[in-house]
Amino acid sequence: MPAQPTNHKVRDVNIRMLRGGSGPPLLFLHGANGLPVWLPVFEQLSKHFDVMIPEHPGYGTSDNPPWMRNIGDLAMYYLDFLDGLGGEKVHVVGQSLGGWAAAEAAVRNCSRIATLSLLAPAGIRVKGIPSGDNFIWDLEEGLRNLYHDQSFPDRMLAQPLSDDDAEIALTNRYATTKFGWDPRWFNPALERWLHRISVPTLVMWGENDKLFPVAYAKRWGERIPGAQVEIVPQCGHVPAVEKAELTAQKIIALAGRR
């Protein structure tokens, strides 16, 4: 059953959040394109978890506090967010930009994190293997380059974009530029602190990712102690959409829920 958007407040910042399911808390941090709809992967996860999908500050209709200036601010915001939830530790999942924020939060403090699932995260740079330039791609190209199976973008592009959705997409693009433009999609300091991630970690990567090449998965796996690296064949940048069932399975297994 699709979750309804709710409001969530941490300190003085109000954000939009999708929430559904029951079980231990699971926090899903979305990627550069903003708050997704209630996807099949969330339906699967909500059978095992209390799934929370906040819209990052600065995205969509969430507040845009002026102090939110870089990825470190976003990471600190989510540490506040986790503290605010209280109760048991939280399974944290992050897609792309959201994976970057999750990793930045985890190197600072893992005490509120149960497990960490990084789905094609941004955040590091492997020299000699440049990321795709999603800031120069046009809108259709940008969408097509995220997927291996072109039937996904085909369906998305066939849907007309309402004025409200277009404004949200534009707002998201601004926020994403703030975090990801320079240095392009990475923080030079992050890689050298990844050893501080002390919780069970899954790194999942589409073999055919055109934004962050699959070679990045190996580097993440080498830097995070004990990380489990899953390379997904026939899959682009968004395994949670293209291989929803598999993605859900791996996250659930990491959490020891099956």
Binding site: F135, I136, W137, D138, D163, A166, E167, L170, T171, R173, Y174, T176, T177, K178, W181
Partner: peptide, 21 residues
Amino acid sequence: PFQMLLPPGYTSLPSMKNTLR
């Protein structure tokens, strides 16, 4: 192309929303 000429932030978000409309 648009993505080169008007990268996000080059024009303020409110002006860009107007342009988009």
